[in-house]
Amino acid sequence: MNAGPSATMTNPANTSSPNEINLRKPDFQSAAPAPNGAPDEVAIRADKFDGWYGEFHALKGISLEIPRCRVTAFIGPSGCGKSTFLRWMNRMNDSIVGARASGTLTLDGEDLLSRTRDVVELRRNVGMVFQKPNPFPKSIYDNVAFGPRLHRSFRSSDLDELVENSLRAAALWDEVKDRLKSSALGLSGGQQQRLCIARAIAVGPEVLLMDEPCSALDPRSTASIEQLIRELEAQYTIVIVTHNMQQAARVSDRTAFFFEGSLIECGDTDEIFTNPRNKRTEDYVSGRFG
């Protein structure tokens, strides 16, 4: 029972839900053009996508579309395959023994699963933020500059500017501008996570994948990250995996519900939370299981 590719975008700017009144994102029409200026509204498209870990069939026939410059949330109980699916989008599963996939998964119409695909270039284009903040044991500056230095050689003034803008984009600049050279490990958990977002932004990605980015944070840090996510969507296609349904309702435009490796339902967030088509979705979002 898949929503399938037929679940296309409706304009989320016109919809509203009671618990996100204060966090409306910028108007759809006024949003900045996508970085690559692609005319297609769909950034990532999966069609009959299957994923395995060895013998374990982790993802079964997933078909969905992820709109450009919008926030899409993956929800579902633990082990439902949502994180696994996320990790296929930047091929982080490559390093896992026995992980394989079939079907179609494309970014901007280009095959993500191809053997000849340059994984390094893909990951530059698809950034990832992890469950636990994982700043490198380096200075704040070096954390942000790490990615850019890998891919290009910069003049130092350009690099300074890039680091500053990335930290500004992660709403961290004002808090750390006086101690860029001190260790990133001295930051608070929420600051560390925003640093990881800045680090991902600095390589100039088009897509940001977030794997439960707030699950290790306190409520106040969570609120600041959620606000940041809403602010970043003008520029980035964001996919966020979350266990927290309120969070999905607060930050996302689109929601996909996974259950036991299958995509049960995918649609506008308001739709999923107020008027789900599937009984299991309704049970899950209303907290009856999971």
Partner: peptide, 10 residues
Amino acid sequence: AVSTAARSAA
């Protein structure tokens, strides 16, 4: 400010 910075960073 955030989205401006993000655009500049890109």
